[in-house]
Amino acid sequence: MINDADLLVNDAHWAFGTGFEDPLAGVDTTVPEGVDAAGLARCCLMLGDDALVLSQRLSEWCSRAPDLEEDIALSNIALDLLGQARLLLARAAAADPSLVPVLPEDSPVPAEDALAFFRDAGQFRNVVLAELPNGDFAETVTRLLLFSTWRLEVFEQLVTHADTVLAAVAAKGRKELSYHRDFSARWFVTLARGTEESRRRVLTAVDALWPWWSALDVPAEVDVVLEQVFAAARVERPEVPPAEDGGREGGHTAALTDLLADMQSVARAHPRGLW
């Protein structure tokens, strides 16, 4: 019989221990000269929140995916994004400590966790596309295709960023994102050209996501890639007016509030907890 208190203090029960290290441990987090620290922090917060929120959404598939193989694939992708979020939130906190919510003085919660678990929806800077509820598997695949194609292009550009920490995060992340894009593109085409029912679901997903997708300011290169995937899937991109996405300024849908309630409840119940 293992009791809770034992689990919390006895590292031997956990394969990798319970003390998660600062993801930027050993890295010089001084902001290079000529880089606007507050602007850098805002940029990292946006990218970090996109990854954190979509990671949480993808992890909701755990044990519920259509098949064991898909279950593991989506969980892997969720973990990749969580890793990106940790690095980016830690970078944001180091570049501009004023972003980090104030916790009790004796709280051992690191800055990345304070950002993840102790901000309310209005302080999150993710785009609405990341927070929308999962829908069915076709909708999850379609969102992942749009998101990872866009994010991969952004990371390709950030690899040469003047802040070497952000550049290194981007260099690591683009390998992960290339896989996410391949995985979702292949499923998108497979479903769109599969059965009548799977195609119907893809088309429904595209219609549902498109207003939130077209609200985003994405680099032109993204469209080139998407055009190829949509052509292979024989899917037309819908002509619909963009939605009002205030996510980058903290304007979110109720879906984010629900997601955060789920994600943050344990950390908030134990603000002095050590994880």
Binding site: D67, L68, E69, I72, A73, Y179, T190, G194
Partner: peptide, 20 residues
């Protein structure tokens, strides 16, 4: 072993299930 709808996705599944 694993299930997959086609060869390419089988490779992706294998990557996810057996090389994590």
């Amino acid at each position: 072993s694993l299930h997959a709808p086609d060869d390419k996705l089988a490779l992706m599944h294998a990557r996810d299930v057996y090389t994590r």
